[in-house]
């Protein structure tokens, strides 16, 4: 009996090894909502596996910041070949780890800004914006100054635990520079609360705890397309809107460098990009041939786009955080 089991086990192991030798595995670390069944992960996995002759394996971490922390914890021993889901506020820190390799590709997508990062390639992007309910708020504020002077209630995310929260911090800093503390002081009485992550803040807004929540200009598209609800809108701000560019990079220690390159190239094609608008609810880095889904045409298009360089964002994060904390702690 036990001999039988040993033989069986050996046979199974051999088959598994043979299978593994035939189909290479590409491991992609990404954030949790990307791999969930409502995220773009499943469709992208199917599309890539159909053409790569490989097994694409997604591994989820909580969010972009957790993703980078995980790669740093694992260092060069990491199983990951590609890391997907960092944003420009994190790329400087990611580059400084020395764990990422050059992608060697030229980005030819549709970003509102020029892109020349040698380590990271964009896969989607979105403008941060305050989302409100049109039936409850007829004249939304047109700037941070107007918002600060109003008695509207807003919910934002904590920049110490959330990437959108960090994006807002950079938005105010980029738009107002040294005057940022004054803007935060004026906003202090508008901020109902600061949540640990995006979903808590958006949930509070939807349940009526606040008039506006920090989210994306694309958020109303979800309600329009998935729920046939056109009451949600994003408020255009005169200062311009800060951009979040979500990127992916190849790890230097990957054991599948060619496959990783192939995935990064695939990332900029239809099979990947078509899944983005209606699962991640962001703009695809390269607009699909068929164009964007109908609802996206109704979204506001900011005239001015703000984005700090990744090195600058990294350098400003500490001081901006201190200003934010000082202004809101009073």
């Amino acid at each position: 009996m036990s001999a039988m089991r040993t033989i069986l086990a050996a046979a199974l192991t051999t088959t598994a090894t043979m299978a593994a030798a035939e189909t290479p595995v590409l491991t992609v670390y990404t954030y949790d909502s990307f791999v969930s069944e409502w995220g773009p992960g499943p469709a992208i996995e199917k599309a890539f596996e159909a053409e790569c002759g490989c097994d694409l394996r997604f591994v989820g971490a909580e969010d972009g910041a957790a993703l980078l922390a995980r790669v740093r914890l694992e260092g060069a021993r990491s199983e990951a070949d590609v890391v997907l889901g960092l944003d420009t506020n994190l790329t400087a820190a990611a580059a400084a780890t020395g764990l990422f390799a050059q992608h060697g590709q030229t980005f030819a997508g549709d970003l509102p800004v020029a892109w020349a990062d040698p380590l990271f390639l964009p896969f989607d992007w979105g403008w941060f914006a305050f989302v409100y309910d049109r039936t409850k708020l007829s004249t939304p504020p047109k700037s941070f100054v107007e918002l600060g002077a109003s008695d509207l209630k807003i919910v934002i995310q904590d920049p110490r635990s959330s990437t959108p929260g960090l994006g807002l911090l950079m938005w105010v800093k980029d738009a107002y520079g040294d005057k940022a503390p004054e803007v935060w002081t004026a906003l202090a009485d508008n901020i109902v609360t600061v949540t640990p992550g995006w979903s808590e803040a958006y949930g509070l807004f939807l349940s009526g705890e606040a008039d506006m929540a920090l989210s994306y200009t694309t958020s109303p598209a979800y309600h329009l397309i998935a729920e046939k609800d056109d009451t949600k809108a994003a408020a255009p701000f005169d200062e311009g809107h800060y951009l979040q560019v979500e990127v992916a990079g190849k790890l230097a220690a990957t054991d599948q460098p060619e496959l990783a390159d192939r995935f990064l190239a695939f990332m900029e094609t239809e099979g990947f990009q078509a899944a983005i608008p209606e699962t991640n609810w962001m703009y695809p880095a390269k607009t699909p041939a068929a164009g964007l889904p109908a609802g996206f045409g109704t979204l506001i298009k900011p005239v001015k786009t703000l984005l700090l360089g990744s090195a600058e964002a990294e350098a400003l994060r500490g001081p901006a955080l201190d200003e934010w904390r000082a202004a809101l702690s009073r």
Partner: peptide
Amino acid sequence: AVVLTLGGGPA
């Protein structure tokens, strides 16, 4: 989560 969500800010 309680402290962060209901706390009202960095204070």
